[in-house]
Design a protein around this nucleic acid. Structure first.
Lengths: 92, 92
DNA sequence: ACAATAGGCAAGTGACTACTTGCATGTCAA
DNA sequence: TTGACATGCAAGTAGTCACTTGCCTATTGT
């Protein structure tokens, strides 16, 4: 069960938004891939920090993961974002 | 200039989301009206707390306000929410 | 088996955040 | 003008959060 508060709290951090951007560019990355590519783009986060960020994103339902051997594959899930526009409809 | 981080941080707090809900029900309320109606709905926040929440919402661009005599009228602005679905498009 | 790889767990720290408390400012009605 | 009303400001506090640090587990290749 995903709470809406978790979604917003997860999105409130700039590094977590960068992770979502990275998964938007290439879905299904491992922790090490995400680390490498974030650092390559100037982010200074360590593996442990990014691992904790991914846990927050998973709790919010924005990222789903499954283990494959000794690696863990992360997938983006934009479904929880739907609740945002449903709650406060954007007026055109 | 509204930063996307401010929007998510503002939405991360449950009381602030209740304030947005309240303004969705009836737009253009004063601080005292918002306080009264939130408390009537079981929220235990004080006036000062809600005032600070409104300041955060204004900084995020989600609420715009103008003074009228000794009262301050608050209006909802859902425009910043658009950036959410623009950044991570919701797949149907 | 053994070393390297990919990731996990948990305690500690500094910064930030929500909330309170107390007082000050500005406005309206009598 | 004087008091009541609506709101603002600013310092202090308790709790949360992001990040580090150090060690541990599990899997793969040789």
């Amino acid at each position: 069960m995903v709470r809406v508060g978790d979604v917003f709290r997860a999105l409130a951090d700039p590094t977590r938004r960068l992770i979502l951007d990275e998964l938007t560019l290439r879905d299904g990355q491992t922790l090490f891939e995400i680390c490498s590519r974030l650092i390559a783009h100037g982010n200074t986060s360590t593996r442990q920090a990014i691992s904790q960020h991914l846990a927050v994103l998973e709790e919010a339902g924005l990222v789903v993961s499954h283990r494959s051997g000794r690696t863990k594959i992360h997938h983006l899930n934009t479904q929880p974002l739907r609740s945002i526009t449903e709650r406060w409809p954007v007026t055109d």
